[in-house]
Amino acid sequence: MNSPATLPESRLTLPAQAGAKHLPNSVLGMIIFIIAEIMFFAALMSAHTIARSSALGGLWPPPGQPRLPVERTAINTGVLLLSGVLLWLGNRYMSTTPKVGRRYVAGAIVSGITFVSMQGVEWVALLREGLTQTASTYGAFFYLIVGAHALHAVVAIVALTWVYVLMCLGRRLPAMFAATQIFWYFVVIVWPVIYLRVYL
C-alpha cells in the first residue's frame, strides 16, 4: 500500500526465441516416455531383488529348478551391445555419408534380430528343461522381466526397420530417426542390468 508494487516491465522487445534450440517434439516425447519405462523396469527389478533376497533358506535359484545359460547369454549380451554401437556409428555417418550410415543401421537391425531370436531359442530350451511360470517366482520373474525386455526389443526393431526402409526410399526423417534411436539405446542399456541381476 505505502510502497508501490513494481509494475510489470514493458517487454515490447521479445526475448530471443529459443525455437531453434528446442528439442524436436518426437525426441522430447520419447525421452519422457523412456522415463516411465525406466520406472517400469526399476519396479520389476526391485520386486525381483526382494523376492530373491527373501527366498526360502536363501537358496536362489530354488533347488530343483534349471540353471540359466549364463555363458551363452553373455555372448548374446555382446551381440546386443554391438547393435547399439552400430546404430551409434550409423547416426554419426548419417549426416555426412548417408549410404554408409544406412549400412550401419542395417547392421544394427540384423544384430538386434539375432539377439531376439537367440533369446527365443533359449526360452524354448528352458521350457523344455522345466522352467515354467508357475513352478516358482524364480521362473515367473525370469519370464516376466526377460519377456518384457524382449517385447520392447521387438517393438524397437520394428520401428527401426520401418524408419530404415523409409530412409532408404529417400525420406529424410532426422527427428523420427533420433527418437527411434533413443528407444533402441534404452533397450540396449537396460539389458546388461537385467543380465547382471537375473542371470548372475
Binding site: I35, M39, F40, A43, Q133, A140, L144
Partner: peptide, 17 residues
C-alpha cells in the same frame, strides 16, 4: 504421473499373471 505410473503397471502385469 509419468514418473510414478511405471511401477503400478509392472505390479498390475504381475497381478494379472
Amino acid at each position: 504421473f509419468m514418473a510414478s505410473v511405471g511401477p503400478l503397471i509392472a505390479g498390475a502385469v504381475m497381478l494379472l499373471f
